[in-house]
């Protein structure tokens, strides 16, 4: 019961903080839209080529924005060493990790939900009845990325040049998640059968579970001084 209260308290605090400052969501949102605009110059707008690369662009935008948000979220927790204050509380490290992962998924997810319709319009994508599946893919990809990102942002925040360190660590390691997310999204948007998409989804779920388990075990060592 106490654990649940603590879990909810941390999550509530993170959301309240963001509601007041809006700095993370705003930064991520503007950034992901900027990425989309830049890519519009790379490919001919409306061309078939653009439509086939749209899933890739989508994920590049989300991942770059997510990286930005993760980095800010942890840096903010350190302005007055609040992270230390949290660690001094009688709270289990794994609970703290889980709460942080969920919080990060919520932040990045919110940005995705707002950006997605804009991209669908910009790239003239046909989602049709595939909405629920698309949302599931978004969630699974984001969950894996946020899990690894939560532990790496705790590391990078304690290094010099923290803004540089996070993507350098995060991107190569999350390649499998990014690949699986892009592939399943592009199959979905190309109107392929669920049977084609399913192996990639399964892979994505497998990655999520594996990364969560490993990061869950290692988090304690990252926050300990």
């Amino acid at each position: 019961m106490q654990t649940l209260t603590q879990f909810y308290t941390i999550l509530h605090k993170d959301l309240l903080q963001e509601l007041r400052s809006k700095e993370i969501i705003t930064a991520m949102l503007v950034f992901s839209l900027t990425v989309v605009v830049i890519f519009n110059f790379v490919f001919d707008p409306g061309s078939a080529e653009m439509r086939t690369t749209a899933p890739g662009i989508l994920w590049v935008a989300f991942i770059f924005a997510g990286n930005l948000g993760l980095s800010r979220a942890f840096a903010r927790e350190q302005e007055n060493s609040m992270m230390q204050g949290l660690l001094l509380c009688p709270v289990d490290r794994s609970l703290l990790f889980t709460a942080k992962v969920i919080g990060n998924i919520l932040f990045i997810g919110l940005v995705e939900i707002i950006t997605l319709p804009v991209m669908i319009i910009f790239f003239d994508l046909a989602v049709g009845r595939a909405w629920p599946l698309l949302l599931a893919i978004l969630f699974l990809g984001t969950a894996g990325f946020a899990t690894v990102g939560t532990i790496f942002s705790a590391i990078s925040a304690n290094t010099r040049s923290r803004e540089v360190m996070l993507p350098i660590m995060l991107f190569p390691v999350t390649v499998p998640i990014i690949l699986a997310a892009i592939k399943s999204t592009s199959y979905l948007l190309a109107g392929r059968e669920t049977a084609d998409i399913w192996p990639w989804l399964r892979l994505l779920i497998g990655f999520d579970v594996l990364y969560f388990f490993v990061c869950f075990l290692l988090y304690e060592y990252v926050v300990e001084e």
Binding site: I151, I155, M169, V175, P176
Partner: peptide
């Protein structure tokens, strides 16, 4: 400690990266 954590995750990643590619 950071390097150790990263070293473990990084190595576990190797087969997964290979498979997914």
């Amino acid at each position: 400690k950071f390097a150790a954590v990263f070293g473990i995750i990084g190595f576990l990643d190797v087969p997964i990266v290979y498979m997914s590619i």
